[in-house]
Nucleic acid binder design. Structure first.
Length: 152
DNA sequence: TAGGCCATCTGGTCCT
DNA sequence: AGGACCAGATGGCCTA
């Protein structure tokens, strides 16, 4: 339990109007019954919200695993994960576009070996230089993510 | 200690 | 009516 808010409704919160139903409402419309029912629904909503956020975090973890993280020993934040995913997708898109421009696979691979050699490997804080055995893809995507334009 | 990141609670809104 | 989604508020944890 992380929140320590007072139990009562915040200032300005609307109070539920009295129930207009008749006898069939007796169980839940008595003062205590209504409060109990509202509290139960709130607790259930809290639990659903927790599950929803856990699902969201699971999705973020899956995204972190497929997004490049060269030389970063620290886990990417959610914001950084989204940034990196965006840059990664853009890089892949660029590569596909290049592949279409070059007729043969040989031409294309030659271009990338030339293009993404050590001299062209973009450096950023914490990044390690790729050794000869590093994956080709690691060379391709060793770049600094472009920052998002924050909506204002 | 300040700042960043995160989990949780909560009330509002929309949809089924 | 109830569930999903969202955004704001709040407090805990961690690091520079």
């Amino acid at each position: 339990m992380k929140s320590c808010k007072p139990g009562g409704p915040p200032a300005g919160a609307r109070v539920a109007p009295p129930c207009a139903a008749g006898a069939e409402c007796a169980g839940t419309c008595s003062g205590a019954g209504r409060l109990e029912s509202a509290a139960r629904r709130r607790l259930a909503a809290n639990a659903r919200e927790r599950r929803r956020m856990q699902g969201l975090n699971t999705a973020f973890d899956r995204l972190r695993r497929v997004v490049p993280q060269w030389g970063q020993d620290k886990k990417l934040s959610k914001y950084e994960t989204l940034q990196m995913a965006l840059s990664y997708i853009m890089a892949l898109t660029r590569i596909l576009a290049e592949a279409e421009r070059f007729g043969s696979e040989r031409d294309w691979v030659g271009l990338h070996c030339e293009h993404f050699g050590h001299d062209h490997y973009l450096q950023f804080p914490g990044a390690k230089l790729p050794g000869e055995s590093e994956l080709y893809s690691q060379r391709l995507f060793g770049f600094q993510p472009e920052p998002f334009q924050m909506a204002t």
